[in-house]
């Protein structure tokens, strides 16, 4: 086992957790072996347990503690109040942004703030990546559906940006104007009673045969399976990926981070690490997207894991 030249990041919390849980989570996360912490409300404008100013304060506190911090912007921006919150983030004066919408890219560019182009920016090719860099991106995440051979081809052109891969957690697959959690309760979105608080890892949507398929997270639809790319880190390192992202879950995130960290440090094999996380994530482990097939598939491909 050799050490890998990968940074480890923590993505924003994609679910709706209570204010106390969020603060507790970041208090702990501050002690984890992470290179970058992303935070902010990236999914739903109705989730206001923390206001935008709270997120900014929290980000500044973590930055004061010596962490590299990035504020993640909401992906679906519809109303003027969505844009108002976005402007607040842009004007935070200190911490960089992860943009997930073109409008956010416009504001970051105009303010001269370097940004991370998130998975929802739809960068599928090297021309669009070069454009992102011209707009001010210093790091990018490929769409989660991009397979390793497409990414390897793009990285072979040696882009100057850092490349981060979404490597762990339920996959963010779709956004809608409609809230599916509210729909489940026959509630209107404007009167959703914040039911998402009851589902800190999403609400399972299964087939009529009872097989887990998707997961409802308010206006976001996610995979039921847990995207688990731990067995593929050596391969990522070899192709020029610079960072891997763990997406927060309501329990065991610390262990997931520890497992990634151990594989990156070369102190534990990928297989042993995967084994140690059994039963510590929602849904089945899947890696189909990375391997060039349906995202729902667990390929069992650990060919490169022993490197």
């Amino acid at each position: 086992m050799t050490a890998l030249n990968l940074k480890l990041t923590l993505g924003p919390i994609l679910f709706f957790w209570s204010r106390d849980e969020v603060f507790k989570f970041y208090e702990e996360a501050a002690g984890w072996p992470l290179d970058t912490i992303y935070l902010g409300e990236a999914v739903c404008s109705r989730r206001q347990q923390l206001r935008t100013s709270d997120w900014i304060t929290l980000a500044h506190q973590l930055a004061d503690a010596g962490k590299d911090v990035v504020l993640s912007c909401q992906a679906l921006l519809e109303s003027e109040s969505d844009l108002k919150r976005l402007r607040k983030l842009v004007e935070n004066g200190r911490v960089r942004l992860e943009v997930n919408d073109l409008g956010a890219a416009k504001l970051a560019r105009e303010s001269g703030i370097p940004f991370v182009a998130g998975t929802h920016m739809n960068v599928y090719n090297s021309s669009t990546l070069a454009l992102m860099q011209r707009l001010g991106a210093y790091r990018w995440l490929p769409p989660v559906e991009m397979d390793r051979s497409t990414l390897a081809a793009i990285l072979a052109t040696q882009p100057e940006l850092e490349t981060e891969v979404f490597a762990w957690g339920r996959l963010p697959l779709a956004f809608s104007a409609r809230c599916f959690t509210a729909r489940h309760y026959n509630l209107k979105k404007d009167d959703c009673q914040f039911k998402c608080l009851d589902y800190p890892d999403g609400l399972q949507l299964a087939t009529r045969e009872g097989a887990g398929f998707l997961s409802i997270n308010g206006i976001q639809t996610m995979s039921d399976g847990c995207h688990a790319l731990l067995p593929h880190l050596a391969e990522m390192d070899a192709m020029g990926v610079t960072a891997v992202r763990v997406s927060p879950q309501s329990a065991h995130t610390a262990e997931v981070v520890a497992a990634f960290s151990a594989v990156i440090a070369g102190t534990q094999s990928a297989n042993a690490s995967m084994e140690s996380l059994k039963g510590k994530h929602a849904g089945e482990a899947v890696d189909g997207y990375w391997c060039g097939t349906a995202g729902i598939i667990n390929t069992g491909d650990t060919l490169h894991a022993s490197a």
């Binding site: 996959l171 956004f175 997207y289 349906a294």
Partner: peptide, 12 residues
């Protein structure tokens, strides 16, 4: 779903 931001088909 928001067009351009729906990966459900490739997930399946």
């Amino acid at each position: 779903m928001v067009e351009g931001r729906c990966l459900l088909s490739s997930y399946a």
